[in-house]
């Protein structure tokens, strides 16, 4: 498996879009930390940008890359390799190189200015989100044959996780405002990896006080050890489930 991963990663790292993505993250992170005199405030602004950009680039780039590799995948399938190996190598290659891009682009500035628990949490979330959205992209690709539809599905998925989900939750909250919803909210937030990432970082930052009673309930749960473990577990589940489903589907796919 490492044989293919090595070459796929070497190919992606030289890709112009990935290089631009790295440079963009680098410039944004440095300028955020330089513009704000308070590093925590800079981190908060950076958080919002990262939570939008990282999933977007990961999901769209992976979708397009896998579609463009369709002939290459065919060639690999005609070689003495298991299909599972090919698919997982492709996933590892994509996830590895996009994580590397995030680590160089955003990780280095964060480590320079904020080498503490918050900074580390932020880097961990960025890496996890990169990997999760590569996994989701590969599931979208394997489900749709048509390239245009696949890319459309990827964009919609990103839109759902980044914007629509929060809108739906807000709508739900207003509709049932008379009921105590603070605890169910914890369960609902686990349904969206982006939200999980946001909550985990905010909890590290001690700004939960600004979120009112819900914030307090969240703090009670996500601020504790089991809560953090729960959310990391959920995020691993968000990686493993799409990868497992897409591998299963790819095993029987007609190329």
């Amino acid at each position: 498996m490492t044989k293919i991963v090595k070459y796929v990663m070497a190919d992606i790292i030289r890709n112009r879009i990935v290089l631009l993505y790295t440079a963009f993250l680098f410039i944004i992170s440095f300028s955020m930390f330089s513009l704000e005199d308070n590093n925590s405030k800079a981190l908060l602004s950076l958080l919002n940008i990262i939570l939008i950009i990282v999933p977007l680039v990961s999901i769209i780039f992976s979708t397009i890359y896998v579609y463009n590799s369709s002939e290459f995948i065919e060639l690999l399938v005609s070689q003495p390799l298991k299909r599972k190996t090919i698919w997982l190598s492709l996933f590892t290659g994509l996830a590895g190189s996009l994580s590397l891009a995030f680590l160089t682009g955003a990780g280095i500035p964060i480590l320079i200015y904020q080498a503490n628990a918050i900074g580390f949490m932020m880097i961990a979330m960025g890496l996890l989100l990169s990997i999760i959205f590569v996994a989701i992209a590969m599931l979208a690709v394997v489900k749709t044959r048509d390239k245009a539809r696949g890319i459309g599905a990827a964009i919609l998925l990103w839109l759902y996780f980044s914007l629509l989900f929060d809108g739906l939750v807000l709508f739900f909250l207003f509709q049932f405002a008379d009921y105590p919803l603070e605890k169910p909210m914890i369960a609902v937030s686990a349904l969206n990896p982006v939200d999980l990432g946001r909550i985990l970082i905010l909890m590290q930052m001690d700004v939960s006080a600004m979120m009112g009673y819900t914030g307090a309930v969240f703090k009670d749960f996500f601020g504790t050890y089991p809560g953090v473990i729960f959310s990391f577990g959920m995020m691993f589940l968000w990686t493993i489930l799409p990868v497992w489903l897409s591998t299963r589907k790819f095993n029987h796919k007609d190329l």
Binding site: D11, R14, E71, S78, R83
Partner: peptide, 19 residues
């Protein structure tokens, strides 16, 4: 799947990763 070791295949259109 190991049987493919004994096959050389030349596809109709060969496309490889760009870089």
């Amino acid at each position: 799947w190991q049987y493919r070791e004994q096959i050389g295949y030349m596809p109709q259109t060969g496309r490889y990763p760009d870089n």
